[in-house]
Amino acid sequence: MTKREVHFTLNGRSVTYEVEPRTTLLRALRHHGVTSVKRGCEEGECGTCTVLLDGVPVKSCTVLALEVEGRSVLTAEGLVGKDGKLHPVQQAFVEEGGIQCGFCTPGMVLTTYALLKKNPDPSEDEIRLALAGNLCRCTGYTGIFRSVKRAAELLKDQA
């Protein structure tokens, strides 16, 4: 199939990609060097390809690249400040050891970011419910849940 152009905002910058209709957002991003978005199961299960689409967390393997025309996509790269400083959510994962192999981390961080925007003070149950679609095979999740709570504190301090 012929390639078509898709114009969208990626981490605050306007970009244009040339993609086939069948190209998923996941594959398009990785092809263009946005490698924080991981290709795990590629069938909507694992959550390592999570991105925020107009602020809403979705699995980018379930989105066609052409569907993001005119929309805004945020990846973990976009959370890092201009000065290279980590976002408080990222910092919290570092401080609390919410990371082992790191493959799930960008997705975890983005889902956490979206959760805390919606609910700045989530309960343990709300954290578990929000992160249910992001699988981690290393940590057993306890470090990740600690990281989310720490991120909530850091964001509150910042506000």
Partner: peptide, 9 residues
């Protein structure tokens, strides 16, 4: 149904 990320789509 599924999880938060899938329910968003």
């Amino acid at each position: 149904h599924s999880d938060w990320l899938i329910r968003n789509r």
